[in-house]
Design a protein around this nucleic acid. Structure first.
Length: 768
DNA sequence: CATTTAACATTTTTT
DNA sequence: ATGTTAAATG
């Protein structure tokens, strides 16, 4: 791929104007973007400082920079200093440069100093927030009713969602048009309601609407007496639709108290963060947005002649708004693939790319208030469709992922997509599926079978090695299980994607010693003694005594630890003592120091930090020495952007892939109904009732499996030549069952268990 | 056959 | 605590 193809050329050469680029998987996106960048900065009078290139990850930014260095005449240092970065890090820099007075634009007195910290650890932030929240509760008793129904982490989630959507509080009200968003859009809701309430047509007449069907569960809820009856809403037997007047009645609700509660909490939490000098990711972008919105002179300094956004499908609302504020000229290139939008849990909004033109128009209208204008007319569309990664068979089959029903009754509308054309010349692609009673074993044995097998070539004449194979899963669990099993058979498998760091033996021992140092904790001693080889009875005997007779060497070790001032020294000494110094122990120290960089740490808060991490099963990446030729096991999310000659999509089981998207918190913001509460506390009865209006509204918002289908699409398009699906026998998910594979290629049962005797021989040979 | 009812299974992804 | 499926009912 040395010369750009026709569509790539179109993107590279058209540098002026606004473009929406549909860049499918494997279409040479990075190649094209870097070349376009080089062309732009190659123009007279254009410098790297005039171009903002936004990427999704820091790694991607680095890679882009490296490739651009090769393509341009600029000093490498110049390119690495240039604004090629994630939105987050770029906003952080903006705040460092100009943020001193940013909070006061919302009415907050606290100042941003130049060393504001990013709160990267979710667990740490939850910890901080909990503390803040209990203080808030004590001081704001007028919101008592809300404390009865909320819990801290759910509320924190809501605040972050609001910030990502561009909804911020000011001292006495809401910033810009934010309140409109909170109230919701009745006109748009009407469409949603009507669509959901349409009687379904069948061959012989009408059936009840989906909304009426879903509202069956209404009867199991606890509603107050004045709530309408199920029968009233749904009508009697044979009724096809929910009564129309409930459209308005469910939407209209006095939410002044709710809004006021969220406002005060939000505002004070911002103040709290700023006074402690830390900000989470959404808040960093929120404050940058406010700053650029309110201060034209800063905007002018910080804006760019050219803006390019990579992975545009994973941007959120505030990022798109920021991109507009950062654009001095209407030279914007949004490059992405809606089919690969898989980060909604991180507030990414697939509508940014699907309804780009509409959103631009809407946001630009909002920006008029800030006297920001940008003359964007019709957005031009460029479609990259020549694929340099996968065989045509793989590409065609992958499209089915976007139509897979997630349950029996779901009918998925045909997606509007740009079909990809393979340029690889791979002709021998195999696509298969199999189930087994023991799925991990079956996957491993199937891997053994395709290795060194001339029926499954990497490409012309090249056989597959372990390193050519990846096993992708929806959740982490299966991958870890698989790795464990593989290691017992000596199959080289490398799990990539982080571990539950604080559940490792190292961390548990450190926790034990911290507990001992903190309060002479029996729990701590129990762990330490057990680790030292004392039996349960022996340990009990020691701990039961009035005057505890700890082993002298342990006593001495404790005294040694007590003499240290820093946790780092304590941790290092513990790891050293037990001979536990490795990548994991290094990472533990790094994480602890990171987490407490911006806030005060004492032994007590560190202990609860570790406890929270264990409880929440928090995941951290640990750099492992990558062995060369081994099977990669990772989640679909982690595999984004990567490619492998052969891909196994495993654990395509019920409830796993597609995963059931549940987990509603009590307070929720959702387009187009706005801010809502699922429960209401009734102080007269002393009881939390369900909110009947919410019940109807939420049934109108269809359970969305689109993202699960996109995840499947991403997984499938990682494959260059061969693709396998696997599930556990009897647990196959609808995705697995609906795969449209030829009977010939289906292997209903792989006898991994039965042939394990033979397999074991093969496995043993691979001893590494 | 459409609707109602009860039983059943399952709870991620991470800049 | 939810949503899906399979069995019971009208």
């Amino acid at each position: 791929m040395t010369d750009p193809n026709k569509q790539q050329k179109q993107l590279i050469e058209n540098t002026e104007g606004t473009y929406l680029v549909d860049a499918g998987a494997g279409t040479g996106k990075t190649f094209t973007i870097t070349r376009r960048y080089a062309r732009i900065v190659g123009k007279k009078g254009v410098e790297p400082e005039d171009v903002f290139l936004a990427t999704f990850t820091r790694n991607a930014a680095e890679e882009m920079s490296e490739r651009i260095v090769e393509l341009t005449e600029f000093e490498p240092g110049r390119i690495f200093e240039a604004p090629i970065s994630t939105f987050h890090s770029h906003c952080q820099k903006i705040l460092e440069r100009h943020g001193f007075n940013a909070p006061e634009l919302l009415g907050i007195e606290e100042k941003i100093t130049e060393e504001v910290d990013v709160m990267e650890s979710q667990v740490r932030e939850r910890q901080e927030f909990k503390e803040f929240y209990s203080g808030f509760k004590a001081e704001n008793t007028e919101y008592n009713d809300f404390y009865r129904i909320t819990e801290a982490s759910g509320v924190l989630g809501l605040l972050k969602t609001l910030a990502s959507k561009g909804i911020f509080p000011t001292e006495s009200s809401w910033f810009g048009e934010a309140e409109k968003y909170l109230d919701g859009d009745y006109e748009r809701f009407k469409d949603v309601f009507k669509e959901m309430n349409k009687p379904r047509e069948t061959s012989n007449g009408q059936r009840q609407s989906e909304l009426r069907d879903r509202l069956y569960s209404y009867r199991w809820k606890d509603f107050p007496e004045d709530a309408p009856d199920v029968a009233e809403i749904r009508g009697g037997r044979g009724t096809k639709s929910v009564r129309q007047d409930f459209m308005r009645r469910s939407f209209e609700e006095n939410r002044d108290q709710l809004k006021s509660f969220v406002h005060d909490l939000y505002y004070e939490y911002l103040e709290h963060c700023l006074s402690r000098n830390y900000l989470n990711f959404p808040f960093i972008m929120a404050l940058s947005y406010v700053l650029l919105h309110e201060r034209p002179e800063i905007r002018e300094k910080e804006s760019f002649e050219y803006v390019m956004i990579d992975e545009f499908q994973d941007t959120n609302e505030i990022q798109l708004k920021l991109a507009l504020l950062l654009s001095e000229e209407p030279n914007i290139a949004a490059v992405g693939d809606w089919k690969q939008s898989i980060y909604s849990f991180q507030h990414a909004s697939v509508e940014n790319i699907q309804r780009f033109q509409k959103r631009l128009e809407k946001y630009l209208e909002e920006l008029q208030e800030a006297e920001k204008t940008l003359d964007i007319g019709e957005v031009e569309r460029i479609e990259l469709k020549q694929n340099y990664r996968s065989g045509q068979k793989i590409l065609d089959f992958s499209e089915h992922a976007l139509e897979l029903p997630a349950h029996r009754r779901e009918n998925v509308p045909e997606p509007e997509l740009v079909s990809l054309e393979s340029k690889t010349g791979f002709e021998s692609s195999k696509i298969e599926r199999f189930t087994s009673e023991n799925e991990p074993k079956a996957v491993l044995s199937r891997i053994q079978e395709i290795i060194d097998n001339e029926k499954y070539l990497k490409e012309e004449g090249e056989i597959l090695e372990y390193g050519d194979i990846a096993v992708l899963t929806r959740t982490r669990r299966f991958g870890l299980e698989l790795q464990e099993l593989a290691s017992t058979y000596g199959i080289p498998v490398e799990y990539e994607g982080g571990v539950e760091l604080f559940k490792t033996p190292q961390a548990l021992l450190l926790l034990a010693w911290l507990r001992i140092l903190n309060s002479d904790s029996l729990r701590g001693w129990a762990v330490v003694l057990e680790h030292a080889g004392y039996s349960l009875d022996e340990a009990k005997a020691i701990l039961d005594e009035e005057n505890k007779s700890y082993p002298p060497d342990m006593k001495a070790f404790r005294e040694k630890l007590e003499s240290f001032d820093t946790v780092k020294a304590v941790a290092n000494t513990v790891f050293e003592h037990y001979g536990y110094e490795n990548e994991v122990s290094d990472r533990i120290i790094e994480v602890i120091q990171d987490a407490f960089r911006s806030t005060f740490m004492n032994t007590g808060s560190l202990i609860s930090f570790i406890e929270d991490n264990i409880e929440e099963g928090e995941i951290y990446q640990v750099e492992t020495r990558g062995s060369e030729n081994s099977v990669t096991v990772q989640t679909v999310h982690a595999a984004k952007g990567l490619e492998y000659p052969a891909v196994f999509i495993a654990d395509v089981n019920k409830g796993v892939f597609p995963s059931q998207n549940s987990g509603f918190s009590v307070l929720k913001y959702q387009d187009p109904v706005g801010l809502r509460q699922r429960k209401k506390f009734d102080s007269e009865y002393g009881f939390s009732f369900d909110n009947w209006r919410y019940e109807i509204l939420s049934k109108c918002m269809a359970g969305d499996y689109d993202e699960e289908r996109r995840l499947m699409y991403v997984a499938m398009t990682r494959a260059e030549n061969h693709l396998f699906f696997s599930a556990e026998e009897g647990k196959e998910s609808p995705f697995y069952e609906n795969l449209d594979l030829d009977e010939k290629t289906v292997e209903p049962e792989l006898q991994a268990v039965e042939i394990s005797e033979e397999d074991r021989v093969t496995f043993d040979i691979e001893d590494s």
